[in-house]
Design a protein around this nucleic acid. Structure first.
Lengths: 230, 230
DNA sequence: ACAGTCTGTTAAACTGTGTTAACCCCTTAC
DNA sequence: GTAAGGGGTTAACACAGTTTAACAGACTGT
């Protein structure tokens, strides 16, 4: 999956802050166009493609809210993040009412801005889904947690739900410990004695399924849990 | 478009705040389950379906960050909003690093919380196939939920209302679980023993209709529901 | 009004998942 | 060494879900 650079429209009239933000985001591999007022920003918006817009609310010529309205008019889903000194409740509400994705009041931490930016992009960008991993390569096997299948050179073995769940958590923690109690509470809902025994039975089953590839191992860490090694 | 109620998991140990938030969100037509500590919340998370989680960071027994990690482990895309008195930069960063969608520091405006909640839901509920979608491509079949037809290279099979409803919900939740009780309550109105048996009969029928494409499967998750895989 | 057809429910026999039980071995502690 | 307990393994079992069939009621066309 190829990760195209993220293009950011930044509208900020404060030269110092604008420049600083631009530099910082560029250092983080974003492509940033900085506009110093709302009107320039809207022209820029119309003539370029952006993945997200960061708008200062108070700007000369055209303020951020008006700009946001115009952007919304031509693109109903463009992610918008407001940046402002106004922390008045009414302003925040108005910002979100315009379809903002986030609203930060100055002064803010630039790291937090980055985090919030990325949180929005996680949701928005379809080519970079932070989605649950569902397929795993385990030695010569391919395990699909959604389909609940374990493939081995063409042959497919169907797994039951519990088998699949347990193997999924082992894969997520591959080469590291899968905590006994965590697995029990997550897959079996509670960590009673019988469920623990039941889980051991499932570990045995998984070992058998994976026994064709001797490099794979599910080892027990006494009193702690299990590790899937490969 | 039929808008199913949004289900909210709220983990907050402060009784007053928790109750207030619950009341407020319920007044806004959200379905809210309030849990008073992280452990209860995680149990609740596992036994129910939620659209979004609002987690207080400081809670007894299990804190919000730990809870978020566990939720992330079992669901990589579940929207999470942190609610906390800690406004320390490091905490905010940690929150977002765990894949949070937003992070609000107390005291906050309850209206702003609602706005932020809706901003997140705007983004998340869009890429999960809209429930007003009426045509679905299932392997080599085309299913039209309004016309109640299932096409397979030119040939059309008419579906009954129940068949169609059930298949629609399976499609909406494709590759994910369609909760048994949800389906029963939605399609059969109540989840009695006989309705459950009836639904199983319909699952069999759908399996038969879809049996020409071996990549398609309706798999059962014992005690939980069904998954349409393709 | 009647036969024919179709939808959805009930019944009953069958299948397979997940739990429990039993018996084993191995590690750890004293 | 021996007791205690965690874990490994196999088998038996209960019960959730699967499947086929029969049936009741609603709808259709004559």
């Amino acid at each position: 999956m190829e990760n195209r650079t993220v293009r950011v429209l930044l509208a900020e009239d404060d030269e110092n802050l604008g420049f600083l933000l631009k530099e910082y985001l560029q250092a983080k591999e974003y492509e940033v166009d900085l506009y110093k007022d709302g009107e320039k920003a809207f022209k820029g918006f119309q003539n370029n493609y952006y993945d997200i817009c960061i708008l200062d609310v108070m700007m000369p010529i055209k303020d951020g809210f008006t700009l946001a309205k115009e952007i919304r008019m031509s693109n109903g889903t463009m992610p918008i993040l407001f940046l402002t000194a106004k922390s008045l409740k009414e302003d925040v509400i108005e910002g979100f009412a315009l379809g903002a994705d986030d609203y930060m009041t100055k002064p803010f931490s630039i790291e937090e801005l980055l985090m919030r930016l990325e949180a929005i992009l996680r949701r928005t960008r379809k080519d970079s889904p932070a989605s649950d991993q569902t397929q795993f390569q385990i030695g010569k096997y391919i395990f699909d947690a959604t389909k609940q299948t374990l493939d081995q050179n063409g042959e497919t073995r169907k797994l039951t739900t519990k088998e699949s769940e347990l193997l999924k958590y082992l894969c997520i923690n591959k080469n590291a410990l899968l905590d006994r109690n965590f697995a029990l509470k997550t897959i079996w809902v509670d960590d009673s004695y019988f469920n623990a025994r039941s889980m051991d039975v499932y570990i045995t089953k998984l070992r058998k399924y994976l026994s064709d590839d001797p490099t794979i191992e599910i080892i027990n860490v006494r009193g702690k849990g299990f590790k899937l090694i490969y």
